[in-house]
């Protein structure tokens, strides 16, 4: 397994922390999924409540690395400031960099993304850029200092799976040595398996588990799915054929 900015992860599963029915179910989902990374965010804190500390007390007990995001940021300045705040509060150089360009699809603003990635990489951040499968953008992100890419499967929270298999294959083939995580749009365990079969190094998801009817069972299903996809790829799959080819030998068949 490739490392992510020098970190070897115990699994190829990364899991978001939002939208679970309860904190107890969130914890169980992390246990069952065997996720190695948890994504978190920064939001406004009320002076009267203590929601931040309550949430953090749960997350810090999980045996995972923390990946703060800049979710909801639409400008370079917003994303960079949020990254600065996240680095201080979570005490990590990792940042999942999101610069959103379009509301309906939550498609990344790749121009702003490259600009913000350059600023943050130069400041010593280890940037995980949420991007599209675009090869040219990927190249610019790598030139900006990113050593990991996070291409989307499909729009965030859509559950559509991998919408552009051709584009993702091309991206994987073009940068074979770059650790890549499929982030966003995963809806089913089979989507995660497909991502791993294509040679991606990890899958990051949230809604598919948190909003499932039984999140804990779904977390376990995703764990198996990711392992299956990775094992299958490593086992050197057969080439598909257009025509049938009998698996039972013809030789020795009785003439009846």
């Amino acid at each position: 397994m490739k490392d992510f900015y020098g970190s070897k992860l115990k699994s190829q599963m990364m899991l978001g922390t939002a939208q679970y029915p309860s904190p107890a179910i969130l914890v169980s989902c992390f246990e069952k999924s065997k996720a190695s990374v948890a994504t978190v965010s920064l939001r406004r804190e009320s002076g009267n409540l203590d929601s931040g500390n309550s949430f953090w007390s749960i997350i810090k007990k999980l045996d995972v690395k923390i990946l703060p995001n800049t979710a909801g940021c639409h400008t370079v300045k917003e994303a960079v400031t949020t990254a600065h705040m996240a680095r201080e509060i979570f005490d990590t150089k990792w940042i999942k960099l999101e610069v959103i360009g379009e509301e309906d699809t939550l498609q990344p603003d790749v121009f702003g993304l490259v600009e913000a990635a350059k600023i943050l990489s130069d400041e010593g951040f280890e940037v995980f850029p949420y991007t599209t499968e675009d090869l040219v953008v990927a190249d610019k992100l790598l030139n900006s200092g990113c050593k990991v890419l996070m291409p989307w499967g499909s729009p965030i929270g859509s559950g559509q799976g991998l919408n552009n298999i051709f584009g993702l294959k091309a991206l994987r083939a073009h940068f074979p040595d770059i650790p890549m995580i499929i982030d966003a749009g995963i809806g089913l365990p089979s989507h995660a398996t497909k991502a791993m079969e294509l040679g991606f190094d990890a899958v990051l998801l949230n809604t598919a588990i948190a909003k499932a009817g039984d999140p804990i069972v779904m977390a376990e299903a995703f764990s198996h799915a990711i392992i299956s996809g990775a094992l299958g790829l490593n086992a050197d799959p057969m080439e598909p054929r257009d025509m049938a080819n009998p698996s039972t030998p013809i030789f020795g068949k009785a003439f009846l």
Binding site: T17, Q19, S41, L42, R44, G47, G52, F55, I89
Partner: peptide, 10 residues
């Protein structure tokens, strides 16, 4: 002034 704390995120 923005005052932010750790929260759920995807």
């Amino acid at each position: 002034l923005e005052v932010l704390s750790p929260q759920q995120g995807g």
